[in-house]
Design a protein around this nucleic acid. Sequence first.
DNA 1: TCCCTCATGTAAAAGGTTACATGATTTA
DNA 2: TAAATCATGTAACCTTTTACATGAGGGA
Lengths: 186, 186
Amino acid sequence: MTTLGYALLGLLAREPFSGYELAQKMKAPIGCFWHAKHSQIYPELAKLKAQGLVNHELVEQQEHPDKKVYTITPAGRDALRQWVTAPMEVPHVRDELVLRAYSLWLADPQAAILLFRTHEQRHVEQLRRYEALQQKLMEEAGAKQQVDSPDFSSYVTLALGIGYERLYSEWCRWVAEQFEQADTTL
Amino acid sequence: MTTLGYALLGLLAREPFSGYELAQKMKAPIGCFWHAKHSQIYPELAKLKAQGLVNHELVEQQEHPDKKVYTITPAGRDALRQWVTAPMEVPHVRDELVLRAYSLWLADPQAAILLFRTHEQRHVEQLRRYEALQQKLMEEAGAKQQVDSPDFSSYVTLALGIGYERLYSEWCRWVAEQFEQADTTL
DNA sequence: TCCCTCATGTAAAAGGTTACATGATTTA
DNA sequence: TAAATCATGTAACCTTTTACATGAGGGA
């Protein structure tokens, strides 16, 4: 089983979805930290079906094309439950902007300021979106959050997403400021 | 040009290295946020050579096999300088542990505590390593850090690495605590 | 009329990991 | 004697991205 397979099971464990809906969900990263495109999702769903981890039924529609709605099976739920807490290596992160920062000493200062201010903005925007989601989650789910409710899991991943975007946007701002100050010092 | 190619140029812009040395460097993530294995590095160096972005000379050794020491060319340095501040999309992060957290509501609480305490520890260890590196960098480079010095770039990436590991380890601890508290509440 | 959304796929290419392959020297 | 380090590569495989492919219905 691939990680993508478990990502799909993780969504289907909450409620049934069609391949198209799963693809929509995974445009914006699920749990803030995973994404996939439809070209990867459709074949993966076929594999999950072949392994008996999901079923699908054809839902006929008048005004839109028919769709296959996938449901997780008890076997799928078991596989997911086992995977969630299985031993795991620390995943190594890859981030191109930070890799660039490693060679930033070569850069044109004005171009560096522009790049980092742009990314600061984008991460602030993502932060605002996550905060809005959190707000919504708090209103809907309230204090009834228990560790065995899906809302709790969503809240947990959102919390890291918010911390991450806050850290990242502040780092971008700080880097930009270093170049701005160096510029006025000359 | 691939991102890996620029990662290698970024190291070679600082000082010459052999393929083996580059592979050693990229076991631990360069700038905290990129890594690669030797099987990817050797072919990439050949491509950089073919494009005239690096040169290499054979250094003969008595007690070890001979090695090819790579040096960046002016064209390589130019390409790197351009890439560093070129427009770029926000890279989407992938993190398996956070993806698992999204389905944590299904998990066995004790297994969840074990997993997150384990990862908390590992990220704390990485944090300590980064802090030691920062300490060393401060002592060596001191306050002379200017935006156009490689030490400044190293410092900038380390700063994010430290922030990231601190955030991540605290998040792991917090998640584990949620399950520990839920456990005693029953 | 043209583009967007809904809906499902396949194919080719790129990027990355694991395993295969070789061989000398040093350390336990 | 066995394992680790130094040193350089290739091959097979897996994952992910980009592009190809089709087609109906609704809105500008």
